[in-house]
Design a protein around this nucleic acid. Sequence first.
DNA 1: AATGAATGAGGATTCATTCAT
DNA 2: TATGAATGAATCCTCATTCAT
Lengths: 232, 232, 232, 232
Amino acid sequence: VRRNSKKEEDKPTDREAERRRTIIRAAINVFAKKGYHGCRIADVAKEANIAYGLVYHYFQDKDELLSSVFDVAWTGFVSRLREVASSTASLEEKVRRVAHVAFEAYRKDAQGVRVLILEIARSPAGGQMKRHAAFTEVLRMADEMFQAAKQRKELREDLDTLLCSALLFGAIEMALTSFVLGLADGRDPQALATAEKQVAEAFLRGVAASGGAAAEWRSEVLDDRLKLSRRM
Amino acid sequence: VRRNSKKEEDKPTDREAERRRTIIRAAINVFAKKGYHGCRIADVAKEANIAYGLVYHYFQDKDELLSSVFDVAWTGFVSRLREVASSTASLEEKVRRVAHVAFEAYRKDAQGVRVLILEIARSPAGGQMKRHAAFTEVLRMADEMFQAAKQRKELREDLDTLLCSALLFGAIEMALTSFVLGLADGRDPQALATAEKQVAEAFLRGVAASGGAAAEWRSEVLDDRLKLSRRM
Amino acid sequence: VRRNSKKEEDKPTDREAERRRTIIRAAINVFAKKGYHGCRIADVAKEANIAYGLVYHYFQDKDELLSSVFDVAWTGFVSRLREVASSTASLEEKVRRVAHVAFEAYRKDAQGVRVLILEIARSPAGGQMKRHAAFTEVLRMADEMFQAAKQRKELREDLDTLLCSALLFGAIEMALTSFVLGLADGRDPQALATAEKQVAEAFLRGVAASGGAAAEWRSEVLDDRLKLSRRM
Amino acid sequence: VRRNSKKEEDKPTDREAERRRTIIRAAINVFAKKGYHGCRIADVAKEANIAYGLVYHYFQDKDELLSSVFDVAWTGFVSRLREVASSTASLEEKVRRVAHVAFEAYRKDAQGVRVLILEIARSPAGGQMKRHAAFTEVLRMADEMFQAAKQRKELREDLDTLLCSALLFGAIEMALTSFVLGLADGRDPQALATAEKQVAEAFLRGVAASGGAAAEWRSEVLDDRLKLSRRM
DNA sequence: AATGAATGAGGATTCATTCAT
DNA sequence: TATGAATGAATCCTCATTCAT
């Protein structure tokens, strides 16, 4: 008399989780189109093809929805980064993999990355430290990775590790931004592959042609700083 | 009864320009504190110590004010960049100077840079292409700079110039972001000076310790990409 | 297979009636805690430990539930009053019994009386004449009681009977209110007993010490009314 | 050149105060019609002939408006009561004056009293203790009045003073309620005058015909309480 | 009967913008 | 110019009610 598959008993929870995912996905799309603050609950509901009020069954309020969007978009990314950072590979390998994780995320869900880059990672300086913290988290994680690399002599001794972290993610982020903004063609797999490779390569070896005037580097920078400082 | 010297006739215009500047400065401060979208006209007026109705004498509407904020914060920066990019200096020198311009902007007006970085450069993907365009403009300018450098063999041949632009500004921006977010101490001049120097240096020479496993680099990246791609 | 005793056939109805009672009781408790308007269907359902959709099996809508709450709380009270009013006892006895009915109701179900006093008897002036009417009903009933008493010379000749009704119930209600609001301790049986006795006594004999300046009473009230009327 | 009347300089403040009063008056009217909770800001604005956004210039939110309504309606009443209670008149005189204050309030502003009686004095048990406290305040004030009277032997010795307070205000309130509800004709000045006089008179001397069966009063009440208590 | 997901109208509140002074 | 009162569209959120299971 009783229907007995495990599947059926799980369904209620599954349904709910699925709905939440649907709504979050809709929210991500709306973000991508209208931006973080232009995102109205009504838009999300319409995008998700559900009634307005239903959003409030699954999320306390707009803020919780927004936080969830962030979590979903961010958590997977961070856990993949952590995996790479904590591996035993060489620094070079790790850097390439970090770039790969970021570009792969873009390939899989450009929309999500768009939101991450344009809307969430930086913006609402005001209320939500969660994002702030999350952003910081990644830099710290990379910082540790570079510190370890420094001890293993894989990193130039003179470089600050936190700065290296900033540079790596800044480079990656801006590279993706150029795709997000349409300066480069994100639909061209070759372009993405090249960018991914070059980001890591340039980060590791620099952009200057070898044999260049590297020697002159330590010359006094302060002099032209004085000259320049009045210009602003 | 009325004195009619040149001075007096100029004054209205001066006054107006000054008022505009006052309001824009107030807007920048509010942005820095509350973020782009948390910025209400009333807040700006209060920060500028004027009645909020008065804002509408100097600016068509909120959008024009926002655009003006952007222009003020952006224009000076871009013109300084252009100056550097169009100079005859070597690529290395140019890169150092670009970094210097950016860091100097931060030293002069951290608040303004904060706004540029956290609020304006990216966010309101929706309405304002102006910012979009402006952002693009810088990347294109740098692109030309790198193309020229490539021709002069100052840039590694294998690197895409647009990507180099993205990397340079990504690195600079994220380095400044680490100050903006408080990960690094922006009040310490030494920290800023070091960061400025290292950003340029790392961009030019890379972060990898020389003599490292550079040889393995050209080995097949695609292989592990295949392995990794399933993990996401 | 199916047993078909009377019992079973009655049960559905019993069940339903019991459910209704459960829900109404829950509603009363919620009213007492959150007030008439703070009472959401969901709260009632939770208090009754049922799904909130189920409320709609037993009640047409919120209004019917509210009406039912009112009926349950009110009907018993009124029928007891009617019993007293229509008895052949003396006015004094009747008054004491009316007070007793009211205080006994409080002893049995302070929560219910609380609702009656604070929420239902007066408030939603708007939609529901039912309550209005019910309130009126009691005053009319008492009015008749006092008219009869007047004819039997048990009531002072100069007093308006409707006014007497208002005074009696006003006195009782406010006395209970002082318990409901916690000004007097409703958990102290002695306090309740005293209040009950004194309400009736004071209503019948007045509060003024006997032998007092009763004579001056008929003096002109209008005079000081004129003086006072300007002060408002 | 300068216009110099005091009046003009006061105007801004006056205007504001006047507006607030206008809005509060409108709110009172809406309350009287639709009840405390049926009162929408939009209704108040319409009643006051202003845009509803304007309400928010003068009041923080709905709650502050409601509180203000309460204050306006209550404060004057209480201060008049206090005046009476603290005077040196005899208890009888004071009681008459208290009744007069209440009835006069009704004559002056039946709508306001209606709101006080039907909506504010009791209802929103939930949020606002302000009203609660205010209600209590009056009872306490009267309590002190009766305590003093007791010491001067103007009050029957056996009566609890707090109970007397409750009875007095209960009687007055219910008498007014009968007008508010339309059971008695509030537009008939004679009816009001009579009610006022009789409320005080009945409160002081009781309703029972003199020479009645007063003697039997102290007979056992407990006996019939036992009998009655099972009836409920 | 019972459940709670789904719906959407209703109402509070905010804030850009206008306008009378 | 300068002020801030006035306006009302836009948007969040609540909650009574319906409905599929």
